[in-house]
Design a protein around this nucleic acid. Structure first.
Lengths: 387, 387
DNA sequence: TACTTCACTGCAAACCTTTGCAGGGATCAC
DNA sequence: GTGATCCCTGCAAAGGTTTGCAGTGAAGTA
């Protein structure tokens, strides 16, 4: 059975040449009509625009990029799109990029370092720069790739590269101090992926805070940064005999609570649990999750700004040998640290060493040991502290 | 303070020409080394490859696309990346695409039809085709855009275009029958976005099923397809006096349960709630959510397959007038309908008209009224039914 | 020896756009 | 009337790659 092509055939690609022919001008005039309208006679301009509109012409961005060296795209490489930590970051980055007339292409790597590298290569020539979010590959590889395409790294510190960091060290410290203040002395840290910078920072800060506060910290992990990862470690947590847990992220915390529940361990009555990220979901579980809020939106916006800032200066400078001072000015490599906030909800409660004089409900309020602001679930401020 | 550029400067772009010069052959030979290796002398080949490796050469995909007409990229336009319904679909599409040597670029539209259109235009020349997931724009606009770039539509029926649909009608019917079987007679349907095809299908099927089963269906909405949307409608649900609710999706169902809880209405004792999608989260809330599982992974894979299939045939055919039969064979526009599954968990229970003879626990098992298979939370099968 | 075949490689056009340069009128001042 | 100025437009090269065509030399055949 043949289907008649009643409507116009599929996609006859209309180029700048077609518009030029239709409007009786040279292609360069058409080009200028779009990229430098002030250089073309108003009458000609309207005619060309009319023809273009009529034919449905749209400039081929790839061809344009070939010659200008700027695609007006930026790439966003994400460790795991299914982790609710990332969507707010993605949305913020997209909105910021859109304001500056850029488009964002997101790619998911499934926490796979090989896929990360491959994607950077694939994106390199199709975007003006790449945001690497929570990368799992090695620092040296990142540095190497940064010679291929401008890079901004999020959630990882790489010397010599622009980075956007969240102060999870401070967050972990606040969480541990909060738990100690509630009377917990045996605390477990549920580690995340081994290659995660965040993981290392948390571990370092938590260890220091525990030592200072006279608590014992048990590190369990590495674990997958998902509900499943948290669920799987529940039995281990119970056996370890701790009364409080700081999890690598909210997803793990939620999985852990679920797992403990299945084992008959009540949260927060028997074990307190703190997460990290303050994903939307953490307000919806029961008990509502106490967590370290990370300024994901601010991180996305900042990262885009940093990328575009370093990008704006001379896209094709590398080609002209004498550009700028002969010494080869290196791009600025600022690193930005964003603040985190402890948000106290219902998954933490008094521990074995709680001071009995203190009424139970008071322990839910802002904790004197906790330097983070009031525990209201405001969006994290994300004040930037340049380093 | 000047920073010395100790390591090699940033990104000297190395082209096919550099490789040709280094290995002493013509650029066309280098090109063939990569795109048609069998045409070049093995000795030459290894020499060229060595030089390319040495210089760090990578073919510029954009330039290649300019001439071959194939970018080996596909675009994925998503209504809301923060909706956990989508990530599994994205991941499945990505994995399927990777197997066929394609890369996927994801873009989020924030449920904004204007952004959708703009993104299709932006992507058109940079990808070989676009997957439109749960689009919010009009059918006619979609048809129009499909002349600019090959399109596959997910979760929307557009005549003349390849579509991947999930049988939410069947799912809604199963859900309503399940509720009626439990003894509910007053049932509310929480509608989603007005422009959603899924929304219309559900409404139609639910109305029929309710009428057939002798129940009264109240439609509330449209609502935002998010937790907030569900939360906001809780009061309205309580006032309406229904004993059961079918929500547009799981997110809304979860928000609703939260909202009812805040009003002191217990689920499922006083009100039963059914969601749609079976997102990972629906297993983690308390009560665990009864829901209509949609085969998101299968949808992503199928959509990629359909796109690549229609794409494979003569990318530049439109340019050569005499290609194939002169009659201009239209692309095949198959529509695929994927099956859904009712998964019974803890958010539904007996209603006011429950038969007392039947023991309470039995109502949790597979329901005789429910044509969907056993209520085990298996991954949806996603058997394709071509229409 | 002369001719065909074959494997390999170079040549140059093509893809679509941007942009420095120069030319062509028209306007203006002198 | 002549020359300078200015606005607009065309010309052509460039960007990195692919690919049909033709050319080269060697091997094989008669």
């Amino acid at each position: 059975m043949t289907v008649a092509t009643s409507d116009e055939g599929p996609a006859v690609p209309v180029t700048i040449r077609d518009v030029a022919r239709a409007s009786g001008v040279h292609i360069s005039t058409v080009s200028r009509t779009f990229s430098a309208p002030h250089l073309v006679n108003p009458e000609t301009r309207v005619r060309v625009l009319a023809c273009a509109e009529d034919l449905g012409y749209r400039p081929n961005r790839a061809a344009r990029a070939l010659i200008t060296g700027r695609t007006h795209n930026i790439g966003l490489i994400i460790a795991d799109i299914a982790n609710p930590f990332f969507p707010p970051l993605i949305k913020a980055a997209e909105s910021q990029a859109r304001h500056r007339d850029y488009h964002v292409f997101v790619a998911d790597t499934n926490e796979d370092p090989t896929a990360e590298e491959e994607l950077v290569h694939a994106l390199a020539k199709q975007v003006d720069g790449v945001l690497l979010c929570s990368p799992r590959m090695s620092n040296s590889l990142i540095e190497q790739l940064s010679r291929e395409v401008p890079l901004v790294v999020v959630n990882r510190q790489v010397t010599g590269l622009p980075c956007v960091l969240m102060d999870v060290g401070q967050g972990a410290r606040a969480a541990i101090e909060h738990l100690i203040g509630l009377g917990h002395r045996g605390i477990a840290l549920l580690g995340g992926p081994r290659s995660s910078w965040t993981n290392r920072e948390m571990r370092r800060a938590a260890a220091t805070a525990a030592r200072t506060g006279g608590a014992e910290l048990t590190v369990l992990g590495p674990n997958a940064p998902t509900e499943t990862g948290g669920l799987a470690v529940a039995e281990q947590v119970r056996r370890s005999g701790v009364s409080a847990v700081l999890a690598y992220n909210d997803l793990m915390a939620i999985g852990l609570i679920e797992g403990l529940d299945a084992l008959g361990v009540r949260v927060p009555q028997e074990v307190s649990v703190v997460g990290v990220d303050d994903i939307a979901l953490s307000r919806l579980t029961r008990p509502k999750l106490t967590t370290v809020a990370t300024p994901t939106g601010a991180a996305g916006r900042t990262a885009v700004d940093m990328l575009l800032q370093q990008d704006i200066e001379s896209p094709r400078a590398a080609r002209s040998p004498g550009a700028g001072t002969a010494l080869g000015v290196r791009r600025t490599t600022a690193q930005v640290m964003l603040q985190t906030d402890l948000v106290i909800r219902d998954s933490t409660g008094p521990g074995p060493h709680a001071r009995p004089a203190r009424p139970l409900t008071a322990s839910r309020g802002p904790d004197p040991h906790c330097p983070a602001g009031p525990g209201v679930p405001t969006a994290a401020t994300g004040d930037a502290v340049a380093s």
